[in-house]
């Protein structure tokens, strides 16, 4: 397992390196000078020059890049340009909110996805399977902004049982926090849960049709055990890979869901940072997201190998 990790590490680092280049260059392509927008419309050229100097914008680009990466490696993210405060604090606050939302959604994805998958593949009654099929198609197709509006209409406007937006941290006030978390997490989770469910259903159906299940059936193994001990372990590895990819998608989707439910997370921060040309915030934020994505892939790969003995022994 350790060897496997070591073998994967170089390519993961390479992706991060390339991503940092791309992020840095893209931001420099954005039209407009942060110093000008920071100084305000009435500022004279010397004020702008002073700001440029303070922020190090006059340095050659390669040097700016080295400073940025150097700061990241030493843990010094520096101050934000425009939003105010330290970049690390801004990202820290946003990260807490986004992680909370993503983990909440991930929980929904796993629970709903497993339910969709197992019921869809093995439910005896036809109408149960049909219902699962319709729900999966719906959850997969309908975009989060539609489900978001529908959820708010139902739970906040009609039933008035859950708030329509905002956030209270689950850590400081668990019961209230969960109420605020439920709708956005569900809204974020539905498409991924549907994909996971569909994959799991296909995987289980395929595994149940395999020769080895026939072997076990002929040996008198109980159907319940056929499902959980023989078919499911074979259906899981691709689903784990998918779950890893979906975690990345959840992070991306969080940007939208945060906008719908006024959830003060990284998405909101990214939006602010981009419109106000706050390089440090946006750079660090994007690199952080890519890092999380790469890490998740890495973990996924290891779990996959652990689940599949054929790869484990390779």
């Amino acid at each position: 397992m350790g060897i496997r990790l070591l073998r994967r590490l170089p390519s993961a680092l390479l992706v991060l390196l390339v991503a940092s280049f791309v992020i840095f260059s893209i931001l420099r392509l954005v039209p407009g000078d942060p110093a000008t927008s920071l100084a305000g419309p009435d500022a004279g050229p010397e004020t702008v020059a002073a700001i440029r100097d303070r922020l190090g914008l006059d340095e050659p680009l390669p040097l700016q890049y080295v400073h940025w990466i150097g700061g990241l490696l030493t843990g010094d993210l520096g101050p934000s340009y425009a939003i105010g405060g330290q970049t690390a604090d801004l990202i820290g606050d946003g990260l807490g909110a986004t992680v909370e939302l993503t983990l909440g959604a991930l929980l929904f994805v796993v629970v709903l996805g497993t339910a969709f998958g197992v019921l869809g593949a093995t439910a005896r009654r036809g109408w149960v399977r049909a219902t699962v099929r319709v729900l999966t198609t719906g959850a997969l197709a309908v975009p989060p902004f539609v489900t978001g509006v529908l959820l708010v209409l139902l739970f906040a406007v009609v039933l008035k049982v859950l708030p329509s937006g905002g956030r209270v941290s689950v850590l400081t006030a668990p019961d209230l926090g969960v109420q605020y978390l439920l709708l956005p997490a569900l809204c974020l989770a539905l498409p991924s849960a549907a994909i996971l469910g569909r994959y799991l259903k296909d995987g289980i159906e395929r595994a149940l049709a395999e020769d080895y299940v026939r072997t076990a059936t002929a040996a008198g193994v109980h159907p319940r055990r056929l499902l959980w001990r023989h078919a499911l372990p074979n259906a899981l590895p691709p689903v784990v890979t998918l779950l890893g990819m979906q975690t990345g998608h959840l992070l991306g989707g969080a940007v939208l869901v945060e906008a719908i439910f006024a959830w003060p997370g990284l998405g909101q921060l990214a939006e602010q940072g981009l419109t106000r040309r706050d390089y440090p915030v946006v750079q660090d934020l994007l690199l952080l997201l890519v890092t999380v994505f790469v890490l998740v892939q890495l973990i996924t790969d290891l779990v996959h190998a652990w689940l599949d003995p054929r790869i484990r022994w390779e």
């Binding site: 040996a219 008198g220 193994v221």
Partner: peptide, 24 residues
């Protein structure tokens, strides 16, 4: 049937490459 399968009638299939469960 389950009490007969494997206990009174055993069965062997054609392709040994696919008839065993790869994870067991």
């Amino acid at each position: 049937l389950r009490r007969v399968r494997g206990a009174r009638i055993g069965m062997v299939f054609q392709d040994p490459m696919t008839a065993l469960n790869p994870v067991l």
